[in-house]
Write a protein that binds this DNA or RNA. Structure first.
Lengths: 330, 330
DNA sequence: CTGTTAGCGCATTCAG
DNA sequence: CTGAATGCGCTAACAG
């Protein structure tokens, strides 16, 4: 394996000069540059990335942290990896499986100089605990949180949810059920607010509404299907905080002998690939741009740059799980 | 940031001794070890991974290469990442987007000492082209290929496919359509052989069978749905080489106004999460173990070990897209 | 514009 | 058992 010294000898210059042409830093005369270039080709020289990293103290690598695989992870991972490569960064992947210690281990890698920064897709520890690690490198997430030390490329779910509800209302639905995620989640709180405002504006009785929070566990779709089927007065429509859970719900409902949208309308959230396959009406909120913005934040922090972020937008994706001319069940 | 020298000073020993206790190589007296351990704790010493990598010439990182995201990737990635961590390796992720050059760039990282080995989930270049890079480090894939330089943790799809076909036959289906992947793929060839043997054994007229190869493009599920609907004499059942395409097919069929399994039975292959959600009868063939075996191969090659691989198995997963008592369409 | 020099932090000789 | 010395490959400061 040829090193910088071999090239220097072959070109008849010093290794500093070779280093200069390789890295592009500093002035090099045309003749020297050409001699070096030729010597590099002759010797088949390849800069040793390990040595460069060691020298610079940077790994040009960003950790991507998640508990485990789920549908949305794919989109995110793909976009994030893409943009990172464009800026010369690599992605190191970690699945914690929900293990707090493993998550901390991953965060610790910033201390150990194995990664330069971290993006968190799904976490296990408290945000406070995580935030403490920001002293070792930038941390970003797409979750909506409020911390001075963790960047959040969130989208306010309030607007998207109001959009969903108005759409259901305009289609004729009045008995709407709301399936929400973790009660502590800021987006859940935004949804709660949206529900409040919506019922007030439409002068509907909020007390009658079925609102289910913390439906973000493994099999919650199944559970909700069962609950819905056992209701005395069933909802006409269900608005979900996630396509994934909505898909589980529809899947389970089918087994119970009901069908969507004939027996109940369903609207999801995410516009995941799953939703496309299952014809699920949903809300798209530029996941990809959230990934981009998170990366840009990390990149800016690491390189002292100020690349601007991308604007985010919310959009309703109409498919087949909501009837546009619903006039009430017989 | 404390270095090995700081620890040495604090402990009153040389840095060699510190190195010895940290790495565990060589003899160190009990007293020295304790002094060092205390000094490490006092100074908050953390070995610099960059320096160690530089020193050893290893990155303890394996590249995971794919064109882009798809359902099965999730399972694979999760298992692969898991086992890698257990053996002290990290996963570097690359999406090529089908770009041949980007794939080569990723392979080149082995030369550049940025990764120690590579696992390929979906490729863009010819296997021959890829095999040339095995001189820089071990390469493994789950694809069924025959190359002395690339390890393959494949499962012979022959058995699984015969299992599918026999199941359909036993349920009463006679007009079976076969949707296969790339004609060059060895598994496709195994399926073709399975079809041949099956029709011969059951004394069915092979000439009548609908066999569609190269159905592995972006929207092939939609195309097949259309073709099926336009057939003069429609198949009773369709056997797919992949859950993903089968799911697309069912999804499209629904839009065309047909239903599964009433109008046509469908059997997939992979037992992906998607198949579970869509109640798709399918074949499971221990994807996770393929991931494990691929990693083990890479690990063994890198560390000159001989850890044994895991045995693979094939299993039919009965769900709702095949009627068990099918007696022919009216 | 270019060569010389001095480390980056660690593991590994080699003596003792 | 331990310390001193050496070098991995590269970059950056400095002096020309």
């Amino acid at each position: 394996m040829a090193t910088i010294i071999d090239v220097a000898k072959a070109a008849g210059v010093s290794k500093s000069t070779v280093s200069r042409v390789v890295s592009g830093n500093g002035y090099v005369s045309k003749e020297s540059r050409e001699k070096v270039l030729k010597a590099m080709a002759d010797t088949g020289y390849i800069p040793n990335a390990l040595a460069r990293h060691f020298q610079s103290g940077e790994t040009k690598t960003i950790g991507f942290l998640a508990q485990g695989y789920f549908d949305t992870l794919g989109v995110f991972l793909e976009t994030f990896t893409q943009i990172a490569r464009n800026y010369g960064y690599f992605i190191h992947l970690y699945f914690t499986g929900g293990d707090k210690q493993k998550e901390l281990d991953a965060l610790n890698l910033m201390k150990y100089k194995q990664i330069d920064g971290v993006f968190i897709l799904t976490r296990s520890n408290d945000w406070e605990t995580i935030a403490a690690y920001s002293m070792y490198g930038p941390i970003a997430t797409w979750h909506r949180i409020d911390s001075p030390n963790i960047y959040s490329s969130y989208v306010d779910h309030y607007d998207g949810y109001v959009m969903s509800l108005n759409y259901l209302y305009d289609c004729g639905y009045r008995k709407i059920g709301h399936i929400l995620g973790s009660a502590k989640n800021l987006n859940t709180q935004a949804r709660l607010q949206a529900i409040d405002d919506f019922y007030r504006e439409k002068k509907l009785a909020l007390a009658d509404a079925w609102v289910s929070t913390n439906s973000n566990f493994e099999r919650s779709g199944q559970v909700i299907a069962k609950q819905w089927a056992e209701q005395d007065e069933r909802c006409d429509a269900l608005a979900f905080f996630s396509d994934d859970i909505a898909a589980q719900f529809m899947s389970s409902l089918q087994l119970l002998g009901y069908s969507v949208p004939d027996d109940v309308a369903v609207i999801g959230f995410d516009n995941s690939r799953l939703s496309e396959l299952m014809h699920l009406t949903t809300v798209e909120y530029s996941l990809d741009k959230q990934a981009v913005n998170s990366f840009i934040y990390i990149y800016n922090a690491l390189n002292d740059k100020k690349i601007p972020e991308e604007p985010l937008a919310v959009r309703l994706v109409k498919r087949l799980t909501v009837q546009e001319d619903f006039r009430g069940h017989a």
